[in-house]
Amino acid sequence: MSILLILLILVCIFAIYSIIPTLVIRAFSIGIFKSAHIKNKAALTFDDGPNPSYTPRLLDLLKSHGIKATFFVVGENAKAYPEIISRMHREGHTIGTHHYRHISNWLLTPREVKEQCRLAAETIEMITGKRPVYYRPPWGHLNLFVNWASRPYKIIMWSAILGDWRYKLGKDKLKQRLHKSLHEGAVIVLHDSGQNIGADQLAPEMMLQALEEFLQEKNDKIEFVPIDVLCQHEESKESLIEDNLNK
C-alpha cells in the first residue's frame, strides 16, 4: 500500500470522526443547544477563562449593569484561580465546563472527552460546591461520539460567535457585531482570555472596551440572563408539547 493511499485513508477517517460530525450536528442541532424562542431575553457567554487580568474586570462590568452571564471555564485555569470562580458563583453567574485543558475534541477519543469533562466539573465543584451541568467544546469542535461522551452535560453552542479573539478586529467592529447579533433568545460568545492557539493575548482588552460601549447603547428591552433560563424555557415548551400530544 502506497504512502499516499495510507494518508488518504487517514484523512478520511479523521473527517468521518471529526469534521463531518461537527458540520452535521451544528447544522441540524443534534443534541446541542444554540438559541431559544423566548421573549425579551438573551444570554451572554464567555469562554476560556478565568484569566487573572481580564475576568475580574469583566465581572466588575457585568455587576455594574446587573447582568448575570454564563462562563465556560477551562478546568486548569479554574484550579489556578479559584477565587475568581468563587466570585462568579457568589455573584450569580452560571459556570459551565470547557474541558480541563483547552483541547479540541477532534484530537480526543470518546473516553478522553469524558475524562476532560469530568476533571473540569470536579474542579469547579470543589470550588463552588455545585457541579456544572453545561458544557461547551473548545473551538466548538465536536466528534462522532461527543453526544455520548459528554453525558450528563448539556452541550451549549451559540447563535453568534463574533471573532473577538482577534485583536485586529477592533473595538468598533466588534461592537457592531454585538448589536447585529442581539435578538430574543440569542446565545452570544465572547472570550475573557487570549492564551489559546489562534487567539491574541490582548484581544480581551479590546473585547472589554467593545462590550462596555455596547452595554451602554443596547436596547434595554432585551435582558441578559444565564443560559439556564433559556434552556429551561425550551425544555418547558418541549414538555408541554409532549403532554398535549399524549392527551
Rank of each mutant, 00 (worst) to 15 (best):
G170N: 03
K173G: 01
L190C: 08
Y167M: 11
Q176Y: 09
K175N: 08
P152C: 05
Q176V: 12
G185A: 10
E184M: 10
Y153V: 06
H183C: 12
I156V: 13
H191C: 04
N147H: 13
A160F: 00
L174D: 03
K154P: 05
A160K: 00
I188L: 13
R177Q: 12
K180H: 15
N147D: 12
L178D: 08
S150C: 14
W148V: 15
H191D: 04
A149E: 10
R151G: 05
L162F: 01
W148I: 15
N147Q: 14
L162R: 01
E184I: 12
I161D: 06
H183L: 10
Y153T: 07
G185D: 09
A160Q: 00
A160Y: 00
W165D: 00
E184T: 11
R166K: 14
K171R: 15
K173S: 06
A149N: 09
A186Q: 06
A186C: 10
A186M: 10
I161M: 10
K168M: 07
K175D: 09
W158E: 01
E184W: 11
L178I: 13
S181R: 08
W158H: 06
F145A: 15
I161T: 11
L162H: 01
W158A: 02
H183G: 12
L182N: 10
W158T: 03
V146Q: 05
V189T: 13
G163A: 02
I156E: 02
L182T: 10
R177S: 08
V146H: 08
A186H: 06
R177N: 09
S150V: 13
I188H: 07
W158C: 04
S193E: 05
S159N: 00
W158P: 02
Y167V: 12
L178Y: 09
K175F: 09
F145K: 12
L174P: 02
I155A: 07
F145V: 13
S193G: 07
R151Y: 06
I155N: 05
H183V: 12
P152G: 02
W158M: 07
L178G: 06
M157Y: 11
H191E: 04
K175L: 13
V189N: 06
A149P: 06
D192S: 09
P152V: 03
K175V: 08
I155H: 05
W165C: 00
H179Q: 15
I155M: 13
K168F: 07
L182E: 12
N147M: 14
S159F: 00
V146K: 02
S193Y: 02
K175W: 07
F145T: 12
R166D: 07
I156L: 04
P152F: 01
G163W: 01
S181Q: 08
G170I: 03
L169A: 02
I161Y: 01
L190Y: 06
K154T: 13
Y153G: 03
W165H: 00
W148F: 15
Q176S: 14
M157D: 04
G185N: 10
